[in-house]
Design a protein around this nucleic acid. Structure first.
Lengths: 207, 207
DNA sequence: CCGTCTATCGACCATCGGTCGATAGATATA
DNA sequence: TATATCTATCGACCGATGGTCGATAGACGG
């Protein structure tokens, strides 16, 4: 009748199931009852671990952002890759679609998931800006980059990288993506004030 | 007992009240009953005109976007202003805060209003991209601008103009805004490939 | 005066997020 | 072993919400 588990285990179960549901059905469209049914617990148990449905959402977002940040850190510290390529890869690694990882977030960007999306953007920017700021500073010192507003530029790059490719705001055809990516990279180069074409080899990956 | 009005009038009443409420309290936090109470109609009447609460939202967004587009058209056709300034003004005119207009949308960007926000962004981009594409083409012909991806650049400029200043995603202090705007304008100049500093006089407005 | 059509009404519904007191079972106490 | 304590679990219950529907009031043409 009563299945008792250690607290942390239950909590993770709930988070796992909720993430899957939020991401496939949308946050609004997922009821707490949906979660309960799959985890197979009673309502009281859910609210024993989380004080609201929204708190679960926030926890999930934090996980997702942290995973992206970890990927970025990994990428940025590999000094064998040209700096500007590392920066671009770090930005794009926030959208695991491009990484070949299971496309967990494919569904995250539907209009009905706006809450998820917006909370994600805000959290991701907070976490990622310092990382990229460091990388840009490195490029400035080495005289690779020439720009006056490093932080603002980093914010813009992150925002664009996310919105342009991570979001159903742009309903592009598949065949449009190469040119969209080219355009994006070109503009990033210009913002950073590096020589045009620096990213050409990096670009091959998407041609 | 029964107050009968012509269909279109009722519809506009509902839209007006709903807009005010969505924008001040948030979409999720505004119940259909809240609207009914103010318009002073029964539930059936509301659902006689709109098939869902969300349909009302979509209609309102469309209005807001159209108003912004009208302002942009007005601005863009004033040939007495330098082209690049017109473009920037058109972008910023999408955020009426900067226009001195009553800040209807100040509240639009809270996290709880994500749905409103996202739908707006998508609709606005669809409507505004062609307008700005025309302006950029004009600058290309006149050899003012130098860029290879006009459409993609326009999309990026609109997205940034909206997200950076129109959105609570960035929780900046008031005193940070001048530098944020400077950074934004600088990057826009670079994307368009115009001479650096072209926007300096335009910039005075925000210093 | 009658029939028709349209706009309006409000009772009703399923579902939702969230609360709470009861309690089963594990653990500590004696 | 018996008892007290604590923690994780249960599910009935709540008010509010978005949405439905059959009834009907009133305008209008004949």
């Amino acid at each position: 009748m009563k299945t008792v588990k250690e607290g942390e285990v239950r909590k993770q179960e709930i988070l796992m199931v909720a993430r899957e549901l939020f991401v496939t059905k949308g946050y609004d469209q997922t009821s707490v009852n949906d979660i309960l049914k799959i985890v197979d617990i009673a309502k009281g148990t859910f609210y024993y671990y989380f004080k609201s449905k929204e708190e679960v959402l926030a926890a999930i977002i934090l996980d997702i952002v942290e995973e992206g940040a970890k990927r970025a850190e990994q990428i940025l510290k590999d000094k064998s890759v040209p700096l500007i390529s590392r920066i671009m890869m770090a930005i794009m690694a926030q959208s695991p679609e491009f990484e070949g990882s299971e496309a967990i977030r494919d569904e995250m960007h539907k209009v009905e998931n706006a809450k998820l999306e917006q909370l994600y953007t805000k959290t991701m920017l907070k976490r990622m800006t310092p990382l990229l700021e460091g990388a840009v500073a490195e490029g400035l010192e080495a005289d690779f980059f020439h720009l006056d507003y490093p932080r603002e530029t980093v914010e813009s790059m992150l925002l664009l990288g996310h919105m342009l490719f991570d979001c159903n705001i742009m309903d592009w055809e598949i065949e449009e993506y190469p040119i969209k990516i080219k355009g994006f990279l070109t503009n990033m180069e210009r913002m950073l004030g590096t020589g045009e074409g620096e990213l050409n080899d990096f670009l091959q990956m998407f041609a």
